[in-house]
Nucleic acid binder design. Structure first.
Lengths: 143, 143
DNA sequence: TCGGTTCTACGAAAAAATTCGTAGAAAAAA
DNA sequence: TTTTTTCTACGAATTTTTTCGTAGAACCGA
């Protein structure tokens, strides 16, 4: 029941499965490497970009994810078609909670301030956020 | 120049140094274990709580952090007094950027929505955030 | 001064996460 | 059919992070 926490590499794969839907290892591996290549180009990237992954590396990772229950799979002839077995929102929520605890010692507000301060956000997005805040203020007019 | 990314354990130590100021290994280790003990109690915690750390474990970690430039130190007689060598805001900003990239594929707004949705925020905090949004809307009335 | 405690340094074990080589079966191409 | 490519399974090497044992020097109280 409790969602398993994916590692960074596993998360990369989940993103692809969420976006593209059920896929083979080959497909995932190709997309992964495309994405890594373009990430390496993008100067904005802070983290050292990963090298491109070998096929068996991705295969092994997805097998591990299968054992952990992060993905499901179905045989299609000789090959396996993998699908995400956890929902994107749930996973993000789990990771976010741990991240807020670890990095901001639990203060979501401080995180939001940092996030809005240092990342781009369109005015539509800001509108959405304002709407959400209005809603929250209705719900819990506390303090 | 580029800040070194602290690991999770290193971040725990930095939090203590940021909060308490320059401290000895002994002090840090004690506070660390206090904190871990109370974290273990708190039911809200999702991540499995860490065991309490042995003294030499913390010592070694802080020595490594010193080599990485995450902390500075000064001799006081026989013992060393360590201080954070990176600023809290800078570190959080770095970690946040990577987290947004990894987990939300770059969309700060999505992160903010998740964060506000699933974490508590007081109305004062919400006010602050609203103020920040207003400010951002002024700056870049784009799109 | 003697014995127990508290330091640092250091090496290395243990645990976690990532990577890859090899082997054998199935499929596709020649 | 023969050869080449493409799969999975599996074990193990590598790398990164975390943990700890041991040794020797400094300190402290009796």
């Amino acid at each position: 029941m409790p969602i398993n926490k994916p590692t960074d590499s596993e998360l990369e794969i989940l993103h692809i499965l969420w976006e593209k839907g059920p896929s083979t290892v080959r497909t995932v591996n190709d997309l992964l490497n495309e994405r890594r290549k373009s990430n390496a180009m993008a100067a904005r990237n802070v983290a050292k970009p990963k090298e491109s992954a070998g096929y068996t590396t991705t295969l092994k990772l997805m097998q591990i994810m299968f054992e952990k229950g992060l993905v499901s799979r179905e045989e299609d002839g000789r090959t396996h078609v993998y699908a995400a077995a956890v929902r994107e929102e749930d996973t993000q929520s789990l990771l976010l909670q741990q991240f807020v605890d670890n990095t901001f010692r639990g203060s979501a507000a401080r995180l939001v301030m940092q996030a809005l301060g240092s990342h781009e956000a369109s005015s539509e997005e800001l509108d959405e956020i304002k709407a959400l805040i209005a809603q929250l203020e209705q719900q819990q007019p506390k303090s």
